Computed example of a mutant assay.
Amino acid sequence: MKTARGFLKPCFIVAGIAAVVAAVIGGLTSGGTGAWAAAAGVALAALGFAGSVWAVAFAEQIDLRLTLPMALITYSIKLALVLTIFSIVKNLVPDALLPLAFGVVGGAVAWLATQVAWAYKAKIPYIELDQHS
């Protein structure tokens, strides 16, 4: 799994670039509030994806059969957290909700596109051969 987590570094780099782009676009369209909210949305998406990777990798160390349940659990937790954060932002800083949402979408697209490009180029064996046969 260590090899398969090699996409984290490029994904974080692209997410950092996406956060800067989101801040500029958010600033131009919604002022200072849009700038920080859009960048925060990108960060929220990146941290959510990375958290899932780390949680699934941890579950894999215990037992490979735990990876799917862990992925589903982390997805549920992330969804609940994002919805809670959106609700809090809507109540406290309503002008930040739309830029935050666009930032989350942009961050998710940037992360997933980077991960797909990395996986396409990676040389990861798709079967594991038993070394003790």
Rank of each mutant, 00 (worst) to 15 (best):
A55W: 01
A18P: 04
T29C: 06
A35Y: 00
A110L: 12
D95N: 06
V14A: 15
S133V: 15
A46Q: 05
M1C: 08
S133I: 13
A45I: 04
A43L: 06
L92T: 07
A19C: 10
Y120R: 14
A37Q: 01
Q115E: 15
T29D: 03
G41A: 03
S52F: 07
L28M: 06
L8R: 03
D95L: 08
S30D: 08
Y120T: 11
I13P: 09
Q131E: 11
C11T: 11
V56I: 12
A59Y: 00
I13L: 15
V24Y: 15
L97I: 01
G32P: 01
A18F: 00
P94G: 05
A80I: 09
G26M: 09
R65M: 10
P125C: 10
K9M: 08
T114E: 10
D130A: 13
F102G: 07
F58I: 01
V93A: 04
V89K: 02
P10D: 07
A71C: 13
A40R: 00
F12Y: 10
A55P: 01
I62L: 07
L83A: 12
A18T: 06
A117I: 04
L64H: 15
K90Q: 03
L8P: 03
Q131M: 03
A37M: 02
A119R: 09
L8I: 12
G103D: 04
G27A: 14
L79Q: 13
Y75E: 15
L81A: 13
G103C: 05
V89C: 02
I124E: 12
G32F: 08
L28V: 08
I127F: 14
A50Q: 05
F102M: 09
L81R: 04
A122Y: 12
K123C: 11
S52I: 04
L68G: 14
V21K: 13
D95R: 04
T84F: 10
V104P: 03
A122R: 03
S133P: 12
A117K: 03
V105S: 10
A38Y: 03
T84V: 07
Y120S: 11
L97K: 00
F7K: 00
F86H: 02
Q61T: 04
L44S: 08
L79Y: 09
P10N: 10
I62Y: 06
F49I: 02
F7C: 05
A46W: 02
V20W: 14
G16K: 06
L66E: 02
F12K: 02
A46I: 03
L81K: 02
A38Q: 02
A46K: 06
A40E: 01
V42W: 03
L129A: 14
S87M: 07
A39K: 02
R65G: 07
I17R: 14
C11A: 13
F49C: 03
K90S: 06
V116F: 15
D95S: 10
K121E: 15
L8F: 04
